[in-house]
Design a protein around this nucleic acid. Sequence first.
RNA 1: GCCUCUGUGGUGUAAUGGACAACACGACAGUCUUCGGAACUGUAAAUAGGGGUUCGAUUCCCUUCAGAGGCACCA
Length: 576
Amino acid sequence: MKMENIKKEIIDLFEKVLPKISNFEFKIEPPPKPDMGDLTLECFSLAKVLKKQPEKIAKNLSEKFGKKIPLPDFIDRIEAVGPYLNIFLEKRTWFKVVCQEILNRKDEFGSGRSFIKKNILIEYSSPNTNKPQHLGHLRNNFLSWTIANLFSFNGAKVTKVNLVNDRGIHICKSMLAYQKWGEGKTPESEKMKSDHFVGRYYVLFSEKEKKDPGLIQEAQNMLIQWEEGNSEVVALWQKINEWGIKGIKETYKKIGVDFDHWYFESDIYDSGKKIIMKALKKNLCYKREDGAIEIDLKNYNLDKKVLLRPNGTSVYITQDIGLAYLKHGQFSPHKSIYVVASEQDYYFKTLFKILEIFGFKWVKDCYHLSYGMVFLPYGKMKSREGEIVDADEIIAQMEQLAKREILSRNANLSPIEVSQRAEIIALGALKFFLLKFTPEQEIRFNPQASISFEGDSGPYLQYTYARIQSILEKAEQKEMTKIDYAVLGNQEEIEILKLLFIFPEIIKKSTDDYNPSHLAQYLLKLGQKFNEFYHQHQVLKVNKKLKNARLVLIQNVAEVIKKGLNLMGIEVLKKM
RNA sequence: GCCUCUGUGGUGUAAUGGACAACACGACAGUCUUCGGAACUGUAAAUAGGGGUUCGAUUCCCUUCAGAGGCACCA
């Protein structure tokens, strides 16, 4: 028997007994409390269809199964409690089915096929090359990375793309500041990470601008020169830009994310013009008196939007219209996901509406994955004023903290070993922290208090994994076949079993909802249930039969924790 | 001004049209010659206020209050 068939067979059973009802979806879920059984059918929705009282339906069903109809082997008993029908599974079979499946499928356990052979395109990160990444980018990167992994795990062919913001007035600010006050310094000469070096001039510009408001005009002139292809300005741009991108790529490497395809705004900023001119011919948009091309979306509860400036140059949405078209042609995605913070909700509504009006039917496959902003205790992150939580900085700080923790436990560890573990633990803590919130939720980040290595944290799960590994290592001889699952069945073991059983559903839900926090919350629960078990029961100092069965069970817990964390881009450690 | 989103114990979060609202931090009280205490056990503590829909609402609708974001020829 396969795990996924357990629910199916139960539904078949009910369908045999009940009068024929078409298109009814049976909801069979685990009940809230252990003593209520292993799975529950609520009879309210059934009551509506059958036009009977839910209590009576439950009672009738339970009585029929007791007498007239024999239960299959894997069901122990079925009880009616008020309007609920509680199903108690036969434990030996249940343990066997679940444990065998995890043993057989290993790290494929939980994977699905719902997106098999589908192309999923995910655009994320979108850095500016004038400054380093901050905490908000980290949330974006980790969220996207996990979503991409989840889709792959469900069979999709995922393409990750990055649209680099490498042109525009903000870039010119860094460029101008460097030209004026850079004195020919380089990241090498200053021994700085190159994106931080560039960011320094962006901050410098803001400072100088306060005293000299004329600077912004100079920056704007520089932008015009850049667009005209002035060789000196272009050379400066290339230099600054390379530094920015180099440093940002180092951060990506550090945090373990990557991309299959890069787009640069400097290449594609004109790419929507043709589409807009075509639309103009079809009267889908119009030319204003001053020559700007505009579209009126008032009929759709949106505002007017300029698509091209009076002088014919592109605005931001010009490029996004072009890029959407380009991506569709290049990848023909089943879903095209844009991971962008919620401050741009309105913008994406506008973009998608324009694409729809322009007649692109594939816009229905475009999806803005919106996530809440990351705030500091004192408000929105403003990189111009230096009030940022810099990504590299916070990772470095967390690594220091992790090192201290490790050394307090293992004073004799080699420095290399300490750093390696510290990196995995620090990133684990940071990633898990940012992923345990549902994406829509804003995060108020308190640098001192937010991230911990205890409680509902990444390191808690890493620790649980390491603890299991430690037991497995001490077990020496492990019997993984011929397990007698009948010896398992105490409450803590059953709680673990229930959670292992629903792992595939959690994966599916996390994917379908674009919400890794389901997975994060699930893993915490699994870790807790294991630790409760651990404190109440022995694994090694029991008779051989029981020991072998428990070893399989806890090994499976470790396998699922590892898989779940890996999907979130978090590594595990055998020792920590 | 207009639009959108969010209000859950002291704090940070979870759940979801269904059985008693879950977890963590903090507080208090414990576990400690143990297979790793980055752990576990227990106690106190919450669905912003008011209406409505429903057999049933923390969840859906309206409203008041509070907070955030947006309404660029910036990207």
